[in-house]
Structures are given as C-alpha cells and as structure tokens.
Amino acid sequence: MADNYLEAYGKETSQDAGERTLKYFEDLFSMEMPLSRMMKMMPGMVKFMMSSKDTREDLFKFMPQMTPMIKQAVTGK
C-alpha cells in the first residue's frame, strides 16, 4: 500500500493525471447525445408519462423540443 500520493501515482506525472481528468471533463460537458445516453433517460420519462394524465400531457408538450434529440441519438448525426 502506497505511503503517500507520489508513491500511489508511481511514475505518472501530473501531466498524465491532468490529461485523463481533462478527457473525463470533455465527456462530461459534451453536448452530444449518443444512444446509450438517451436510453438511460428513457425509464424515468416512461414512468413519468404513466404516472397520470396530467404528467402525460406535460410530457407531450415537450415533444417538439425532444424530437431532434431523439433523432440525433438514433441516427447518430
């Protein structure tokens, strides 16, 4: 077990750790909508839609805004 953080990182420099962290933030702040991300959003939306008539109507009001996102996720463009 490492005694301090320098030992824990071994030969890796802050540059390496920084690159990894920046890559992570790039993914985090990405505005792209891959299918996997869209699929993770679906269960909550379905649950919300099934909850009552009010919620169903609420959700359908957002369909015009959501359609391009869904299209992008499915086609990948």
Binding site: R37, M42, P43, G44, M45, T55
Partner: peptide, 19 residues
C-alpha cells in the same frame, strides 16, 4: 406525491443521476 416521485425520477434520469 406520486407525481413528485415521478418528476424526481425523470429529472434524475435526464441529469444522469440515476445511472
């Protein structure tokens, strides 16, 4: 309320909190 729980679940899903 049931609607409140449904909204929380949807927001959690959309924001990535559920995953």
């Amino acid at each position: 309320s049931k609607r409140g729980v449904a909204e929380i679940n949807m927001i959690s899903d959309l924001s990535g909190m559920t995953s």
